[in-house]
């Protein structure tokens, strides 16, 4: 027994030694990692240490360490504020709307492109639907303002074409904000998002289609029984990833689309954090709201990942 224990000890030591030797031999790899690791440490991990200002009365003068602790005071302030309910409602509803509306289109587009046999037309369609993805958020919102202007835009002109002389200003309608946001996103990104499905479809074994043809299957049946089942795993992974990010609505587009007429539906957590933090200098409150959102998001992601692990083999980590 004693000899065996000693043997184990020795082998552990040996393992350590050989690990050290492998590290030393591969020093070049660690050098290659160094810039990324260092930058991530400085600008992502150090800020995590700064999260404590959410529990302090932070002033830049006193610094992170010098500021006094106040516990959950800022969280209480936030939860007692009149805005808290609408912030959550706005964030979650906008996110769910995007998720539901944005999810099927790329799949649909990929299935359609996969069927087009005229090569020229297929290429044109592909390039055309990818292009809007390269438009910046600022330009996208600028174009929305131009298109949807009731007096001079496409929307106004179309309305006049149908005899409506004074179409409602949908840019100023709170009720239209979410739809404009979501559908312009679909317009901009559905083509690009379909790439991943097109790549997946390219991997379908052609003999499956041949066998289906021999069995008398038409194009509808081939899509239904071959293409769609084949896309399902990819679709599930992407859905999981997006569902785990429900609290993370992008700041940029919402902020740019905000105007005094729609803030009651367009104020989301990200824009609120920016406004109270960077514009009104309520640093600790802003950090608390941001942290709260971040934690919910993190927990959500773990839950979703766990659920998908149970359902099958597809999980993120």
């Amino acid at each position: 027994m004693a000899a065996k224990a000693a043997g184990e000890k020795l082998s552990k030591k040996e393992i350590l030694l050989s690990a050290w030797r492998r590290i030393a031999r591969n020093w070049g790899l660690y050098l290659l990692l160094l810039p990324a690791v260092a930058l991530l440490f400085m600008f992502t991990y150090i800020p995590m240490y700064g999260i404590q200002i959410a529990f302090k009365d932070f002033t830049p003068k006193a610094g992170i360490e010098g500021s006094p602790w106040v516990g959950f005071e800022h969280f209480q302030t936030f939860f007692n504020s009149f805005q808290v309910k609408s912030l959550f409602t706005n964030t979650i509803s906008l996110s769910l709307y995007s998720l539901i509306a944005g999810f099927p289109f790329p799949i649909f587009l990929a299935l359609a492109m996969n069927q087009i046999r005229v090569k020229r037309f297929k290429q044109t369609l592909q390039v055309a639907t990818y292009l809007p993805h390269f438009i910046s958020t600022v330009v996208m919102v600028g174009m929305l303002l131009v298109w949807l202007s009731p007096s001079s835009g496409l929307y106004g002109n179309l309305a006049k074409l149908f005899g409506i002389q004074e179409p409602p200003n949908i840019l100023g309608m709170a009720g239209a904000f979410q739809s404009i946001y979501v559908w312009s996103d679909v317009w901009q990104h559905a083509g690009w998002d379909s790439i991943i499905y097109i790549a997946a479809l390219a991997a379908v074994d052609p003999s499956l289609y041949e066998a289906a043809t021999v069995d008398g299957a038409g194009k509808w049946q081939k899509i239904k029984y071959i293409d769609i089942p084949f896309l399902l795993p990819t679709a599930v992974i992407l859905l999981i990833m997006r569902a785990g990010n429900i609290m993370n609505v992008g700041f940029e587009k919402v902020y740019l689309m905000q105007n005094p007429l729609n803030t009651m539906v367009s104020e989301i957590i990200a824009t609120y954090v920016y406004k109270i933090g960077i514009i009104s200098n309520q640093y600790s409150l802003s950090a608390a709201v941001g942290l709260f959102n971040n934690v919910i998001n993190f927990v959500l992601l773990l839950l979703v990942n766990q659920a998908s692990k149970k359902m099958g083999e597809t999980s993120l980590f």
């Binding site: 240490y49 700064g50 999260i51 954090v273």
Partner: peptide, 9 residues
């Protein structure tokens, strides 16, 4: 870390 801690970093 979120916006504000990153800002001060």
């Amino acid at each position: 870390g979120g916006l504000i801690p990153t800002y001060f970093t």
